[in-house]
Simulated scan of single mutants.
Amino acid sequence: MSVLAIENLSAALSGRRVVDGVSLTLAKGSFTGLIGPNGAGKSTFLRACLGLVPASGAVRLDGLDLAALRASERARHLAYLPQERETAWAMSVEAVVALGRLPHHARFAAASDRDRAATEAALARMDLSAFRHRAVTSLSGGERARVLIARALAQETPVLLADEPLAGLDPQHQIALMRLFRELAEEGRIVIASMHDLTLAGRWCDRLLLLREGRAVAEGPPEAVLTAGTLEEVYKVEAFIGAAAGGLIVQPVDLSRKEKNEHG
């Protein structure tokens, strides 16, 4: 069984520690939501896992030290959906999705049957087949997000890291994406996605990691992490927590009493 072990991971930006000694062990088939207030270190945590920012600690997949690999080799193990979705080149949707196959063959090599099949499957899974010949620069923000998700799917890695993948999507596509991540986990991948929507995190993730000021405050099943006391302490809000249709409902309703007093 694949295991992703993140051990005492720390990272600093401009001399300030942004991620501070975070450890997390995830097994194949898990979907983990990375939550926390703005500035908690979620994006830097994901980028540190990927080797995109200088970091200490270790990230191992089945005992393999991912930091010791070249970037092209690491990309066969980890796929990344960044928060930034701007595209400068008027490439077709199909060509952008096919970029996910680059880690799997030699530079300038022609696409293989496996590459074409993976690209087709990713286009179909993200409902983009009809868009394949359109320039990605002509798409809406939500459509571009789906293209980049398809590119990550085409990469066919055991681990998928996504930074705020729900941003810019309407409710239908937000729920569809959470369903997709859940399906990918059930198919055997390890998925970690940062997000702000606590209800979607609580309903679809099997585990949550809550960060505050770069440190892990809580980690575990959603019902153990999304408590009224924790939300008041970390987010400074009062929240309604209930259940409907077999899942959690978490809705912030006001500032915490302390915050209201401080704001008059």
Rank of each mutant, 00 (worst) to 15 (best):
A88E: 15
V237S: 05
E233V: 02
A71N: 12
L226A: 09
A152R: 04
F131S: 02
L148G: 04
A75E: 14
V53D: 12
M1S: 11
D113V: 04
V59T: 12
I190W: 06
L123G: 05
S43C: 04
E262H: 08
W204L: 11
G63M: 10
L46N: 08
E84N: 13
R207L: 01
A185K: 03
A110R: 11
G29Y: 05
R85C: 01
V191D: 12
R47H: 07
G202Y: 01
A68S: 15
F108L: 13
R179T: 15
R85E: 11
E223G: 00
I249H: 00
L161E: 05
T157Q: 09
V97F: 00
R74Q: 05
A162F: 02
I35C: 06
G247R: 08
T137L: 07
L208Y: 02
M195G: 11
L153P: 05
M195Y: 01
S30E: 15
D254P: 00
A79K: 05
G141S: 09
T25D: 10
S30Y: 04
A5L: 07
L184F: 12
D127S: 13
V237A: 03
K260R: 15
L139C: 10
L64D: 14
D65V: 12
P221C: 00
E233A: 08
H105G: 11
G142T: 12
A55H: 05
A75R: 03
S43Y: 04
R116M: 03
N261L: 10
M126G: 04
A5E: 15
T199W: 03
Y80E: 12
G214N: 07
K28R: 14
K258N: 00
I249C: 04
L66M: 08
T137I: 06
T230D: 07
R212S: 12
V147P: 10
R189M: 14
E186I: 06
V59E: 07
S30D: 15
E262T: 06
R203F: 03
L123V: 08
R144W: 01
R146T: 13
L255A: 11
I192R: 04
A245M: 07
A118H: 01
A162L: 03
G33I: 09
D163H: 06
V191T: 11
E143S: 10
G21M: 07
F108E: 01
L26Y: 04
P171W: 05
A150D: 09
R132C: 02
P103V: 05
L160Q: 05
L50H: 08
